[in-house]
Amino acid sequence: MPPLKIRVTRDIKARHGVLQNEIARRAYLYVARNQALPPQIRHQAQLQLNTFGRYTRPTTVKNRCADSGRGRGILSEFALCRFQFRLRALAGEIPGVKKASW
């Protein structure tokens, strides 16, 4: 079993942070973006939004390769980068995937 890459670990942390803070963030977003509410309240909500940490924003989350930790060239369905995907597909470890030839 290879050790977890630090960036993958960080990404997992971000994912859990998003899960835990999502509802509160949505509520503040609703107040802050609602033009029918008084500006002072909207501003307060925006300030509250800014107090959330880095690992609570959904945009911090990035799909990475579960095997190599690579951030680019990911096939999200398999959570693998293109090279690891190729290696595993050729080894027959991914069900339903085979090399095309015609």
């Binding site: 993958v8 994912r15 899960l19 949505r26 802050a32 609602n34 033009q35 029918a36 959570a79």
Partner: peptide, 22 residues
């Protein structure tokens, strides 16, 4: 006028995000 309803209407993304890595 913008009511912010889209932030309440949208589905929660956290539960599926956590399931990404095996």
């Amino acid at each position: 006028i913008r009511t912010g309803a889209k932030y309440l209407r949208a589905r929660l993304r956290g539960p599926s995000m956590v399931k990404y890595y095996p």
